[in-house]
Amino acid sequence: MWKRTVDLTYRRLAFLRDTSEADIRRTLRVSYIKVAEAQARGAIHFHAVLRLDEATPAGTWAPPPDWATAGLL
């Protein structure tokens, strides 16, 4: 289910930028961290933080393009 969320994030960003999903994936990377929390009633609750980074080789980091703002995300 998480892969679907990330894939839909790329798709929605492409729609908002009026470009292709492949172009978005070449331009930036959706980085994230998620934590599962067990609630007292027995349900599992997830917290997630998404971040947009410039698409760079693995192990390196760069800030996102100017158009990739928190408001857009």
Rank of each mutant, 00 (worst) to 15 (best):
Arg25Leu: 02
Ala43Thr: 12
Arg25Val: 06
Leu28Cys: 06
Ile44Met: 12
Arg12Glu: 13
Arg25Asp: 05
Ile24Tyr: 05
Ala62Ser: 12
Arg11Ser: 14
Ala14Cys: 05
Leu16Phe: 10
Arg41Tyr: 03
Ile33Ala: 15
Phe15Arg: 15
Pro63Arg: 03
Leu16Thr: 04
Arg51Asn: 11
Asp53Trp: 13
Ala40Gly: 08
Asp7Val: 00
Arg51Met: 13
Thr60Ser: 15
Phe15Val: 15
Ile44Glu: 09
Tyr10Arg: 10
Arg4Ala: 12
Gly59Leu: 10
Trp61Ala: 11
His45Asn: 05
Trp61Pro: 02
Leu13Tyr: 07
Ile33Leu: 07
Asp23Leu: 14
Arg26Ser: 09
Trp61Asp: 07
Pro57Asp: 12
Asp23Ile: 02
Ile33Pro: 02
Ala58His: 13
His47Thr: 09
Glu37Asp: 13
Leu52Asp: 03
Val30Ile: 15
His45Pro: 01
Thr5Ile: 15
Ser31Glu: 15
Ala40His: 09
Ala38Asp: 14
Arg29Ala: 13
Ser31His: 08
Ile24Pro: 02
Arg29Cys: 07
Ala62Thr: 06
Ala55Trp: 06
Arg26Ile: 02
Val6Pro: 01
Val35Phe: 00
Gln39Ile: 02
Leu50Arg: 03
Gly42Val: 05
Asp7Phe: 02
Thr5Asn: 10
Pro63Val: 09
Gly59Ala: 08
Phe15Tyr: 10
Gly59Ile: 09
Glu21Val: 14
Arg41Ile: 11
Lys3Trp: 01
Ala58Asp: 12
Leu52Phe: 07
Asp18Thr: 14
Pro65Asn: 05
Ala43Ile: 06
Phe15His: 12
Ala43Met: 12
Val35Gln: 13
Leu52Cys: 00
Leu8Asp: 13
Ser31Asn: 15
Arg29Phe: 00
Ala14Asp: 03
Pro65Lys: 07
Phe46Lys: 07
Thr60Gly: 00
Arg25Ile: 07
Arg25Asn: 05
Thr9Lys: 01
Pro64Thr: 05
Lys34Ala: 14
Ser31Gly: 15
Leu28Thr: 03
Gly59Arg: 06
Ala36Tyr: 02
Val35Asn: 07
Ala40Asp: 14
Asp18Cys: 06
Glu21Phe: 04
Pro63Cys: 04
His47Met: 02
Arg29Val: 10
Ile44Trp: 08
Ile33Met: 10
Val30Lys: 00
Glu21Asn: 09
Ala38Tyr: 06
Ile24Asp: 00
Pro64Ser: 13
Arg11Trp: 07
Asp53Gly: 05
Ala58Trp: 01
Ala58Met: 07
Arg51Ile: 09
Asp53Leu: 07
Ala55Leu: 05
Lys3Met: 08
Asp23Met: 06
Phe15Pro: 00
Glu21Ala: 12
Val49Asp: 09
Val35Gly: 02
Lys34Gln: 10
Lys34His: 02
Arg29Ser: 09
Ile44Gln: 13
Ala55Tyr: 05
Leu52Arg: 01
Tyr32His: 15
